[in-house]
Design a protein around this nucleic acid. Structure first.
Lengths: 137, 137
DNA sequence: TGTCCGATTGTACGATAGTCTTATTGTCTC
DNA sequence: GAGACAATAAGACTATCGTACAATCGGACA
């Protein structure tokens, strides 16, 4: 479970964490019953205060996505329904696109440039059946 | 690192500050990683409102000279040449799009769905002049 | 078997940092 | 003067951190 935080993006740390955890669940990387790192452990990994982690966990707990238990740890919950997981999946896509747009914007690109970059990648995706590796030049 | 402002010059305080910080960096008086005074601390030193300091910090942040982090402080960043930053900028857009495509793929979405989600966000971006917040529904 | 105690886990709350929105002040233009 | 605009200020707000605290677990030991 490798989360990572970007301090330069001005997106709050706890939001970045929430997104990444939701995402990991949506992709099956985290499954129901799995234990998340403890607030202190994850805080140490990310060089961040543990209360910031606790805040993210708390919000996910409020959403019924994880269960945090005093003195025990925090765990991934069962998704309540197929319908909800479908919704989560779509929310993930929505978050993903908006994250993409927001980052491009922050980097000073306009809609047209983002559009161009995207369609180019899309072309590769359609011809190859899968998107290009992120490392490739 | 003793900044001082001259109220008689009619040069805006935040401009004077920006110049002095840039100068301090140029002379090596401030080095990458160094923490600047907090907006309130510096405001108290200079007998000025903290928002004026915040404004100067914000502009330096936009220029990629410093990194201001909510709740943490503001720090000097590594300098990058204009040419290098332009290259980095394009590479990051490329990485961004591929990351987007790769993640959408992992979530089980096809090119068409990714395309649809993207164009929808793009539409908002173009009408509003900036992309939608990532949290909004 | 029961209890104690240290280690580990999450929680509460106040302090400190930057941000946002709105108001005030000064200056420029007509 | 009136209106427009930029610079500054004021105060409420949000994010992060630090310290102190409470719940749970697990081993030691009587």
């Amino acid at each position: 479970m490798n989360f990572d935080i970007d301090l330069t993006t001005h997106v709050p740390i706890y939001i970045q964490l929430i997104d990444q955890i939701k995402h990991a669940i949506a992709t099956g990387e985290l499954k129901p019953g799995d234990q998340l790192p403890t607030v202190r452990q994850l805080a140490a990994d990310l060089r961040v205060n543990f209360n910031t982690i606790a805040r993210a966990y708390r919000m996910l707990d409020d959403d019924g996505i994880i269960s945090t238990q005093h003195g025990r740890g925090t765990f991934i919950l069962e998704p309540v329904s197929a319908e909800k997981s479908a919704r989560l999946r779509h929310e993930s896509l929505l978050r993903l696109t908006r994250h993409f747009a927001a980052e491009a914007y922050r980097l000073g690109f306009g809609p047209q440039e983002a559009q161009d970059a995207f369609t180019e990648t899309l072309k590769l995706w359609q011809t190859d059946g899968k998107p290009p590796a992120t490392e490739e030049k």
